[in-house]
Nucleic acid binder design. Sequence first.
DNA 1: AATGAATGAGTATTCATTCAT
DNA 2: GATGAATGAATACTCATTCAT
Lengths: 188, 188, 188, 188
Amino acid sequence: MIRGAVALFKQKGYHRTTTREIAKEAGFSIGTLYEYIRTKEDVLYLVCDSIYEEVQQRLSGIAQQEGSLEGLEKAIRQYYELIDEMQDEFVVMYQESKSLPKDALEYVLNKELEMVALFENILRDCQKAGEIHVKDESISLAAHHLVIQGQMWAFRRWGLHSHYTLDQFMDDQLQWLLHGIKGNGGTT
Amino acid sequence: MIRGAVALFKQKGYHRTTTREIAKEAGFSIGTLYEYIRTKEDVLYLVCDSIYEEVQQRLSGIAQQEGSLEGLEKAIRQYYELIDEMQDEFVVMYQESKSLPKDALEYVLNKELEMVALFENILRDCQKAGEIHVKDESISLAAHHLVIQGQMWAFRRWGLHSHYTLDQFMDDQLQWLLHGIKGNGGTT
Amino acid sequence: MIRGAVALFKQKGYHRTTTREIAKEAGFSIGTLYEYIRTKEDVLYLVCDSIYEEVQQRLSGIAQQEGSLEGLEKAIRQYYELIDEMQDEFVVMYQESKSLPKDALEYVLNKELEMVALFENILRDCQKAGEIHVKDESISLAAHHLVIQGQMWAFRRWGLHSHYTLDQFMDDQLQWLLHGIKGNGGTT
Amino acid sequence: MIRGAVALFKQKGYHRTTTREIAKEAGFSIGTLYEYIRTKEDVLYLVCDSIYEEVQQRLSGIAQQEGSLEGLEKAIRQYYELIDEMQDEFVVMYQESKSLPKDALEYVLNKELEMVALFENILRDCQKAGEIHVKDESISLAAHHLVIQGQMWAFRRWGLHSHYTLDQFMDDQLQWLLHGIKGNGGTT
DNA sequence: AATGAATGAGTATTCATTCAT
DNA sequence: GATGAATGAATACTCATTCAT
């Protein structure tokens, strides 16, 4: 059901997608749809939740390579590839999550912060290991950056995909990032 | 009318805002509203258009300082300040523009590309002037970057404003950017 | 609109009557119906209210003939005739008022109590004038009686109209009532 | 099941009670509920029927004391007590029976007429025994009266229970009735 | 016999849009 | 020009009923 809903939301947006369409796409009747959800908003919530679920699951292996630059790079590449594969999901989530009820929205934003924290930790490990040198205050910002940089690949496909392949994009982004980090980006 | 509509869209989103509300907020009747527009979508279009109008107007002075790093920095700071002041507008535009009819959307995306091009030109001028050294292919990407980096200040206020002031954010971003650019970001 | 709604409610009951039917019967579109009401329950409320409105208006002249038995009789006859003419309305009101939201229901029950009070006052006047002799506690009960006795003509048409004309019914009821009242109904 | 249904109908009304709720309250699944009934209306029918069943059962002993005034009084008191105990049931039945399909409604109204007839017979016996003196045409009316008077205790609890105890109410009603009957209520 | 998942017709309500005044 | 009453298509959600297990 969630896959179908994502497809519809992507195509027509959350508001223009009817519950009947969601049900039909999922292959059952509205009646049955409403066995699973209580509100149309629930669908949106489930969609957002499942996206983070998958993201977290697919990034779960990342944090291991403690403190090495290769580890960082690998993590980032994995993240970029993930986004490339889940473009639609990301776009939907970022454009529609505002329609979530307040508490659901908070829950979702929290998940996003967890994702940022994931990279923040990796960076901090690298810092500890002496592999990078960034002002302490800049680490969280760098993590935010990194996360957004990746999402940019999804949001701005209309502007980017015509000029770059994912690999070009990743390489370029990484160079930027690592260059700033390895040296002493953000220091005296 | 547009100001009122932005306020409403920001608060309730485009779909949840009724034409009646837009009219009332603007201070005239629906009948009169429909003298100015043909469709609710028109309001959204007008909103998006007016935002870019203002952005372009306020960034118009930028391109002059040809090729100097200070010019670049000044342009960027001006852009960031602009975004800070127009946060709501930016958020609305990026979250709702997907609801525009196809051609209007294209028009709007084009405006966005023009904005990117603006910075691209500045960067290219700097490159020509020998102030920065970036791979040619990376310049457009850097411009994209730069534009998004700024928008991030609007989109992610929930995550950023609690940790950074605008000035901190700007300084940090600039250091990242200039560090990568001045050196030889993206080269061997 | 109200007349139409009464007709429909009478025929199919409140729950089985759709808002569309109400609108159509009233001669306008649902959209327009919802200019006048906010909720289907509002229709029911309006129906109930208008019934009491009419009842009170039509009984307003009654209270004048202070204390005479003829006054009492006249009042009662007027009330019975009123009920005869508004049978449908009464039946609808008593069968459907339970579907009113709590506060509306209270409001309606209050109106009913006002009607009872109307007769209570007449009876009290007669008592004062020495025309009837009833235990004080019984007066309110007698008023309740009297009001219900009349409504019975509406509720139980299926049982009564085949055996009695309104006049027979009125005469009989009056004799019962007056007999009990004139003598010393409810005393030693 | 019926008890449960009555409780639900009393609380929320027939239309607002779902078959699922009825099943759950009865302690089995909807599937099983539909083994016993064919239609939701059937539940209402069963409810109404069972009420009359109980009423008739509990009043069955009444008709014996032929022709005595005490017998009449006893019968009436028994009836009033019955109603007091079955208030909810009566209220439900009278407010919801209109939702029965035509033939079921007729059946139920017939049961009601049987109840009236029960008292009619008692009255007639008293008449024959010379204990009361009422115009022949008035006997059926008096029976209707008597039946309604009792139901009034259930329908109008909101207006009566705050002012009277059941005993006060019964006494008062009886005095009215007997006074009218014993003398020559309704004669020349 | 019993279950409860599946169905889909049915309904209240909203809201963009029109047009007579 | 301006108004706002009127429209009715569109939509989320409910619930009686069925039937495969």
